[in-house]
Design a protein around this nucleic acid. Structure first.
Length: 119
DNA sequence: TGGGTGACGAATT
DNA sequence: AAATTCGCCACCC
């Protein structure tokens, strides 16, 4: 995974937003893309989270981020081919008091969709 | 370099 | 309510 200056900026922006999601709340890939001014790049937000351990290493950062608070716009835990990551995400959410029925959460209840965030 | 891909989203069945 | 369809676009061969 190679990082250009451009993609580094993107990843930093993503992580800045993800770290601001409150405990017990969730948001969507698309809303993160919106908040960082790249509304057409929701898929790239997913890729960023998928590879975040290596990306953070390459960026020289070592903090962890609450990736489990990011869901699809329908409130469902996104499928990624193997179930272990999804199971873990569900457990992490339940752990912080979020009700998960099947793979879904009630966004009206625990959704976090601000119009802007701190930069 | 062109085409397949995807932790997506909105609209449409 | 759930599955399909289609648009999207950076990334990676």
């Amino acid at each position: 995974m190679k990082l250009t200056d451009e993609s580094k900026a993107f990843h930093y922006a993503v992580y800045s937003v993800v770290t601001q999601i409150p405990y017990g709340k969730v948001t969507s890939y698309g809303h993160i893309a919106y908040l960082i001014g790249r509304p057409q790049n929701s898929r790239l937000v997913g890729q960023s989270l998928k590879h975040y351990p290596e990306i953070m290493r390459q960026l020289g950062e070592n903090f962890d981020i609450p990736w489990w608070r990011v869901l699809s716009s329908s409130g469902a835990i996104s499928s990624r081919g193997n179930t272990s990551g999804e199971i873990l995400q569900k457990h992490k959410l339940i752990e912080e008091g979020v009700e998960v029925t099947g793979v879904k959460v009630n966004l009206g209840l625990v959704g976090w969709f601000p119009d802007e965030v701190d930069s």
